[in-house]
Design a protein around this nucleic acid. Sequence first.
DNA 1: GATGAAACTGGCCGGATGGGCAGGGCCGGG
DNA 2: CCCGGCCCTGCCCATCCGGCCAGTTTCATC
Lengths: 124, 124
Amino acid sequence: MSSEPAADIVIALEIDDPALADQLATLLGSVAGLRLAAPGEQATAAIVARNRDTAGGGDFELTPRELDVLALLAEGASNKMIAQRLGISVHTAKFHVGSLLDKLDATGRTDAVAHAARRGVINL
Amino acid sequence: MSSEPAADIVIALEIDDPALADQLATLLGSVAGLRLAAPGEQATAAIVARNRDTAGGGDFELTPRELDVLALLAEGASNKMIAQRLGISVHTAKFHVGSLLDKLDATGRTDAVAHAARRGVINL
DNA sequence: GATGAAACTGGCCGGATGGGCAGGGCCGGG
DNA sequence: CCCGGCCCTGCCCATCCGGCCAGTTTCATC
């Protein structure tokens, strides 16, 4: 293995705004001596948003009930647990989870909490 | 969408480590479409240190392979996807996920990524 | 050579998950 | 009054998940 004198600086993008994140990813992707972090990778530094601008594209509105199940989802709760905690039936829990997956554009509950955490909808 | 780079992205450096800050300043200073913020200037984004020292008591010893599947887990990947991405069988993927659940004290894969994110093992 | 850890693979099975279908009630805007 | 959104519930079904059993190889250490 060719050991370079200085390893690349690994930078994680923690930007809510998809457009801005994409711009930065493009700009930084071609910079030598610097590399974007893969999901889950330990980064040296992170880029965070500074000014809170109203997100134009990825704007979604979760209903109060959906926020409830999302919080429980982040705790690793099963549909049965969600139903018990919220005093609703398992079917309704699945119903809300389904809406969450749709609105968050997630393939599963794990992906849903990851996306929500990335966008700052929930706080892990 | 023809989005023209109307204005440069202004980035503030908020790094304690002078050496790292200097490196980043040098690297980013030569990137077109992006400039560093003047002192006190309103920045679009900020770069913060993500150097987490996990040394201490509660530190996990996840094997390299387990870190691989954990990263994919954070992307919402199914066992099948993990197997394909890693070039292993679904059984082995499930095996590693099982070890992960055990070591992270999680009840499921969703709980596992939440715990891992909370403890800084991964960054979403 | 033995011993252990890590990685890998297989089968089996109960339960959870996700998506589809179908309803219902409540409430506010047009 | 009717329509739409939100919330709730039921059933069916293919798939996935997690845990159990079993085995293999490779590698480093003793």
